Amino acid sequence: MSLHTWWLFFLAVFLLCGTPGPNMLHVMTRSVHFGARRSVAAMAGCLAALVLILLASATGLSALLMASPRLFDVLRYAGVAYLVYLGIRAWRSDAAPIDVDGRALVPSLSPPAMFRGGFAIGISNPKALMFAAAFLPQFIDKARPEIPQFAILVATFAVTEMFWYAVYGIGGQKLAGFLTRPGLKRAFNRLTGGIFIGFGLALLGSRP
């Protein structure tokens, strides 16, 4: 893989990761409720799921899903159910007031719970496996050893994703300062809940 190819990959991934999706929405909402620093565990969970998906695609798991539509459907329906569940829970959550430090006065979550939640969000979309399987090989030079190239691409993807987690996390913490009124907090909860449900319904229509 040439330096020119890597730069093309980096630019594509930079734009892709910055696009709002379930992971970024989860990071932002966690930062609204608990602050960016305490949401690092949620970011780590999302990132672990992403790296696992990229590695699974590189090792051929996506080919198994493409060859087994029934298995893909099982994973897809599980992902849909989880995203819709998150949306309904966010929609119905209490409009807890925000304190002067920009954090919601809600019960705290432990770092392991934050990590598990982020990982579940990140792993809930089997379509990501298909995307990674189609996207990563486009930047692999078949004339050179493939494993080092895949390692570079996965590392680049992970670092870029972490950068955008930080952006969304800081943005969520700043946004919390504007949600000091219960009415605004309720509107935010319903907006994010609706978006999560939308993500789930979009996944429902996907095919391998």
Rank of each mutant, 00 (worst) to 15 (best):
S2R: 06
L15F: 12
D99Y: 11
F34T: 09
T29Y: 12
G118R: 02
A78F: 15
M114W: 07
V106G: 08
L64G: 05
L175P: 07
A113F: 04
L184R: 11
A41Y: 00
Q149F: 03
L71P: 04
F14A: 09
A143T: 15
P22T: 03
A44M: 08
R190A: 04
G169M: 05
L71C: 00
G87C: 03
R144Y: 14
S2D: 14
F14L: 15
S93M: 07
L109Q: 14
P182L: 08
G87I: 03
A95V: 04
M24P: 00
L175A: 09
M130D: 11
A95Q: 12
P126K: 10
L109A: 12
L153D: 01
D94Y: 10
D94C: 13
A133R: 00
L25G: 04
I195N: 00
G102M: 11
R37F: 08
Y77C: 03
G172K: 01
Q173Y: 10
S68G: 05
S2E: 09
G35F: 06
G205N: 15
Q149E: 12
A176F: 04
I170R: 09
A44Y: 09
A48Y: 01
A63H: 03
I195D: 00
V154D: 00
G21I: 05
A90P: 09
I197E: 10
V51I: 06
T5S: 15
K142N: 15
A90V: 02
A36Y: 05
A56S: 14
G171R: 00
P145W: 08
L55V: 12
P182S: 15
V84K: 02
V154G: 00
V40Y: 05
L16I: 10
H26M: 13
F196N: 14
G117S: 13
S93K: 03
P22M: 04
G18M: 09
Q149A: 11
